[in-house]
Nucleic acid binder design. Structure first.
Lengths: 241, 241
DNA sequence: CGACAAGTTGATGTTACTCAAAAGTGGTGG
DNA sequence: CCACCACTTTTGAGTAACATCAACTTGTCG
């Protein structure tokens, strides 16, 4: 965890506040606590490990900017990316004592993280927001399982793009139908259980059909209606009105 | 949730106590609370839904006996089984208010469930055990993702059998290398992202090689050493010391 | 310009899927 | 006890999706 402490502009704090305040009602105090935490962010270069499998989790953290992933290595070198961490996500929130990380978490881009305030025991908006965030994380794991188990390569890619679109929307990082996607085709392959060659060919099909655009670390959904017909997209919901 | 209330013998309570008391240190009081809960179990026939996607979660429950699964249906009829519920597992434990189920949960066999005692806020062994249980559940989701994304059909089956073996061990349901596996090959296929035809053929290979036995709802690992060479088995650990 | 990572292409191989049907299993009622 | 039914397992033949291997191209950055 190579680090360089620094003041991060107030802007970097926005993602977590934008996200959590949509997941639960935060008091002014709670927003301030988050704001303060976000201002003591730590910059991490790309490819640094935030957590390492089987090692203690030092403290709960907030992912303020950049991209990271949870991943698992197999003995023979195969890798599986389990999920992505996007701005506004929580890392290492766990309720048991002496917790150890069950997966490695590594940045994919330069990133900024900060320690998460410990949510007060008695409930309250922040505790609620943390709980909802955890439940959403589980929903995305379920979707990932379904993608890998039952969707074709083309469907996996489209479904994945919709999921990232949805998550980045929650932190105001989507511009129209376009959003950052700073990952390589090989990383996409390790996420979707494919080879990078096959990802490449499948992307070409989607591009030729005018459905998506993918260049320079950004993705654009050119024909949302058509793309939605290819998959069974249900936005993540974990509680009702 | 077709139901028939009845007293369930004390024996049915054992799974949950066996499991949770290994996950954290329970006080005598806590054990008694669990015992009491387990004695008011409700019998469910096979193929009943415990939770339905998008509907409110009535209360946290304990799965006392039988098998159930979390699953997701796609619009075109494809199904993905996400995970299994085994005796001693918790269902529907969530910390946010007005929670709705994000997946369907359905019994695969006749089963017995009871309401879970709400763990006291202030911590304590039971709260700790619930937390560890939740963390383990997440570990098994990670493993499921890795299985589907990066393992061959043969590896998926072997890895899955080890996982079930490990989980049933925790509730004393393994006899030697043999344990109950009351699911059809089609359900196994829906779990492992394969077709039932391919599961069948792969099982035959494993049988012919004398590695496993699968009959009458029971599985036996005939050659653990050899099987372990085929996969990268790491038992689920979520805390240290 | 050179070096290195990422993306692209082609040829070929393999795993797993599809479709269809037969054989086995267990439970039910006559 | 047998006949029947539904479900599960098994088998075969043909096919589609995705992997592998190896090269070549493009882009990026110092």
């Amino acid at each position: 965890m190579a680090t360089e402490a620094l003041r991060v502009s107030a802007l970097s704090g926005h993602a977590i506040i934008a996200r959590l305040s949509r997941l639960a009602t935060l008091g002014a105090m709670e927003t301030q606590v988050l704001q303060a935490a976000a201002e003591s962010g730590i910059r991490l270069p790309a490819h640094s490990e935030i957590l390492r499998e089987d090692e203690p989790i030092p403290s709960a953290m907030i992912f303020l900017s950049g991209w990271a992933c949870r991943l698992r290595h197999l003995a023979d070198g195969r890798r599986q990316i389990l999920s992505f961490l996007l701005p506004g996500d929580l890392i290492g929130v766990c309720r048991q004592r002496r917790a150890i990380a069950t997966t490695t978490v590594a940045t994919l881009t330069d990133a900024v993280v900060c320690n998460a305030p410990s949510p007060p025991q008695g409930g309250g908006g922040l505790a609620e927001a943390f709980a909802v965030s955890g439940a959403l994380e589980e929903v995305y794991l379920f979707r990932q399982i379904t993608r890998l188990g039952r969707l074709s390569a083309e469907e996996r890619i489209v479904d994945f793009l919709f999921e990232i679109h949805e998550r980045l929307s929650a932190v105001d990082l989507v511009t129209g139908n376009s959003f950052p996607l700073p990952i390589t085709q090989e990383q996409l392959a390790d996420t979707l259980g494919l080879t990078s060659v096959h990802v490449n060919r499948t992307l070409q099909v989607l591009r030729r059909e005018g459905l998506i655009e993918l260049r320079g670390g950004r993705a654009t959904l050119l024909d949302r209606a058509q793309l939605k017909l290819m998959i069974d997209h249900r936005p993540g919901r974990v509680s009702h009105a």
